[in-house]
């Protein structure tokens, strides 16, 4: 009997507070916008008989304007670059942690993940202090004589990438470590014994075997970064607009609810749906193969 409660209590909660809100986003995204409160018309009209009042105007509007497309592309590029750097820093770290002895491995793993537990917002704020014109990095550069006057390090896209790589790095390291940890170290020895040099061992043995970890880590970084709002807002400048900012302003500043909803729903379709389908197929597949 309790089984029913176990399945249906969370089912009920998630349908009500997660699925219906997503459906409402879709509904508003196909509504006709107008001045007023709420700033859109109902999709079902009953005044002169029943009429469905929907439009794809909002989608046409955002997909035909470079302002929206451009910021979405900016966000995708930002996510791509950040994911790349997370991988570049995260892979060697995860690899060396996974190949340490057991005691050290656990300590290192906790050390890597602990910063992730401290506040996200404050970790971004820390970079604001570091990158100030009279901040620590500029002081070091000046003292080393690398530059003769303080560099403008803050409020540009590079500061944004820096902040993202810093805050999302643990999300890359964890799944990578998970896969590298399972991996038989003797394979590396074997490949060396068979005459492959380090370079070849890496590309022919280590890398192919860690592909699932790379995919998992990259997705965990890539997707939230596309929707990232706080980091560009704190560290970024006006040189580049991103999806998150556009969505925020479309809703709060322009008060264009249907437009903001269309932006959000497009984001779901483009980013999230492929992964969800993959996940469902994968869990079905693994369940079948288990029996």
């Amino acid at each position: 009997m309790f089984e029913k409660y176990f399945v249906f209590s969370p089912y009920f909660w998630l349908v009500l507070f997660f699925f219906i809100p997503l459906a409402i986003i879709f509904k508003i995204s196909i509504s006709v916008s107008e001045w007023g409160m709420p700033p859109y018309q109902d999709i079902f009209l009953f005044d002169n008989g029943f009429k469905i009042n929907t439009t794809f105007e909002n989608y046409v509007y955002i997909f035909s304007d470079y302002y929206y497309i451009g910021s979405f592309v900016n966000s995708l590029i930002l996510a791509l670059i950040s994911t790349f750097f997370c991988l570049l820093i995260g892979f060697p770290l995860a690899f060396y942690i996974a190949t340490s002895n057991i005691r050290l491995r656990n300590i290192l793993l906790v050390l890597v993940v602990i910063p992730f537990w401290s506040s996200f917002l404050l970790r971004v704020y820390a970079w604001k202090i570091i990158l100030q014109n009279n901040g620590i990095l500029n002081v070091i550069l000046l003292n080393l004589g690398i530059t003769s006057e303080p560099l403008q390090l803050l409020y540009n896209q590079y500061a944004v990438i820096m902040g993202i790589v810093y805050t999302y790095l643990p999300l890359m390291i964890l799944p990578l470590y998970g896969y590298l940890n399972k991996f038989d170290l003797n394979l590396i020895e074997a490949s060396k014994d068979l005459g492959l040099n380090r370079f070849k061992t890496f590309f022919k043995v280590i890398l192919p075997l860690s592909v699932p970890g790379i995919v998992a880590g990259s997705l965990l970084v890539f997707i939230p970064v596309v929707g990232e709002f706080i980091i560009p807002e704190m560290l970024g400048g006006s040189d580049r607009l991103y999806y998150g900012k556009i969505l925020w302003e479309e809703f709060f500043v322009n008060r264009n609810w249907p437009g903001a909803s269309a932006l959000a729903f497009s984001g779901i379709i483009i980013l999230v749906l492929p992964i969800v389908i993959f996940q469902i197929l994968y869990s079905r597949w693994s369940q079948k193969n288990e029996i």
């Binding site: 507070f17 997503l22 986003i25 959000a264 984001g267 999230v272």
Partner: peptide
């Protein structure tokens, strides 16, 4: 899905709901 959905979209959907 809430694990991968960008927070911004989740926030907007909750507010409109």
């Amino acid at each position: 899905t809430p694990l991968v959905l960008p927070e911004l979209i989740l926030g907007l959907s909750m507010l409109l709901f």
